[in-house]
Every structure is written in structure tokens, then in C-alpha cells.
Amino acid sequence: MARRKKVYEGKAKILFEGPEPGTLVQYFKDDEQATTVSPISAAVEGKGVLNNRLSEFFMSGLNAIGVPTHFIRRLNMREQLVRMAEIIPLEVVVRNFAAGDISQRLGIPEGTPLPRPIVEYYFKDDKLGTPLVAEEHIIAFGWANQQDLDDMIALALRVNDFLSGVMLGVGVRLADFRIEVGRVWEGDFMRLIVADEISPDSMRLWDMRLTERADGTQADPGPLTDVHTELARRLGVLPSNVTHPAKPSLIN
């Protein structure tokens, strides 16, 4: 498939014009996505191939259970066809266990189960460090309205139910994850869909298949080692001859 005009390039992906109106071709790069936790961005061979396969797996699964996403189909090892959407400038984070930023802000020991999944919003601006924002900020600055927020919470919690179940089935604990949400128009009707990607770069994953300690007790869950390759292997979507030492990109 011939390349078309570049529409956008980010840390981990490039978007090109799609073959049909209202579509884009999403290309997955090998760059390790930098975050405020790990601010250094470096190329990791093969990561883009794995993220393409993993995002296809998760997005297809969500589509199959009625959770709308921008994903249409995978085109090749590094590209997929997606719907064009107006991206809401927020990262929607769902937390099941205390870790990272929430542990630091609230003094909750890392690994503590939260009473229920907590949904947080972060304003997408790298220069500002993607700050945590409240619903009042979102509505006041016109990034989304109250109905959008209600729909985003419902969407995020459905994604959480799906991902948590899938991960549990392969011995992985989903501590937290982030998604991006976009608006699409179907005639006069606007709906919100899951956009961008769902991959280990946007999740905090802990391995539950750990060996016993020397004293015979069970080790506590820790970060999934070689997260991209190992997760793809456990889910049965690992392409042949693709390995690399990538580490997970943690949520704040």
C-alpha cells in the first residue's frame, strides 16, 4: 500500500492519510515513549511491530463486545487502518491499584488495592508535564462537556473490565492504564470512541506468575519483565523472530 501524506508524527506513531475519506493509516515506530517517570526516549528494535499486534488484539476485542474504537483493521506488520477522530485533549487514566503518581500524592503504599477503579484526567501538554486536571477545569476550558465526561467514564470503565479480565487470564495484574478518546460524527449524531492505541506503553502491568521466595512464601507481584514480548507471547499474538528488551512505560 503506497504511503500518503503525513498528517501527524508523535513519539511512538505516525499518522498518514488513509485510502478512503475519514480514515488514517497509523504507523507504529520503535521509539520508546518518554514519560515524566522515564523522560528519556530511545529506539527499541521491534517494539512497533509488537505494539501494532497488541493494539490490534485489544481494539478488536473491544469492538467485538460493543465498545467503539477507531480501529478498522491491521494492514501489515507496522500499520493499521483507523477512523479519523477529533481527539479530546485529555489522557483518561483508570487506576485499580495504587502506584506511581497517586501513591506519591496521597501517601498510599504502592500495590494497595483501591476501593474501586478511580478515573483521573490529565491535560495533554508535554510542555506542562501532562498535569492532572479536575472536571471543573475540563468543562470551564471547553475541552469536553458534562455529557462527554459521563460518557468517557462509562467508556473507560468498560475498557477496564475487558482489559482486567484478559490480563487476569494470562497471569498479569492490570494496575492502571490510560486511553485517549475521540469524537466521530455519524450523520448528525456524535459519539465517543477509544482512539490512539492500547499497548504496554499505556499500561502498568504486574506479573502474577512469580516464583516462591527461599522461605517458601509467595513473592509479591512486580513489573512484567520484557513486557512487550512477554505479553504478546502470553496472549498468543507474538510475531515470529521478534524479540527486544523493552521496558514498560509507566503512567504517572
Rank of each mutant, 00 (worst) to 15 (best):
89 P>F: 05
72 I>C: 05
168 L>Y: 14
47 K>M: 12
109 P>Q: 07
19 P>H: 10
56 E>Y: 03
91 E>N: 07
215 D>C: 11
72 I>V: 13
77 M>R: 14
8 Y>R: 02
21 P>E: 11
160 N>M: 06
5 K>H: 09
110 E>I: 08
166 V>F: 08
239 P>N: 03
84 M>R: 15
165 G>F: 11
200 P>T: 01
38 S>V: 05
31 D>N: 15
172 V>G: 02
179 I>W: 03
92 V>T: 10
185 W>P: 00
67 V>E: 05
236 G>L: 12
163 L>D: 02
143 W>M: 13
86 E>D: 15
74 R>N: 07
130 T>P: 07
1 M>L: 06
215 D>A: 10
144 A>L: 05
43 A>W: 06
13 K>M: 07
188 D>E: 12
21 P>Y: 09
71 F>C: 00
181 V>W: 01
8 Y>M: 00
99 A>Y: 07
158 R>V: 09
157 L>H: 14
48 G>E: 08
181 V>R: 04
191 R>E: 07
248 P>F: 02
108 I>T: 01
69 T>L: 08
14 I>P: 03
10 G>P: 04
39 P>C: 10
63 N>K: 06
195 A>L: 00
241 N>T: 09
221 P>Y: 04
23 T>H: 04
179 I>L: 09
231 L>F: 00
54 L>T: 01
22 G>E: 06
103 S>I: 01
131 P>A: 08
128 L>D: 07
101 D>S: 14
77 M>V: 12
245 P>F: 05
233 R>W: 03
111 G>I: 04
195 A>R: 00
230 E>L: 13
44 V>Q: 08
41 S>D: 04
236 G>K: 06
252 N>P: 15
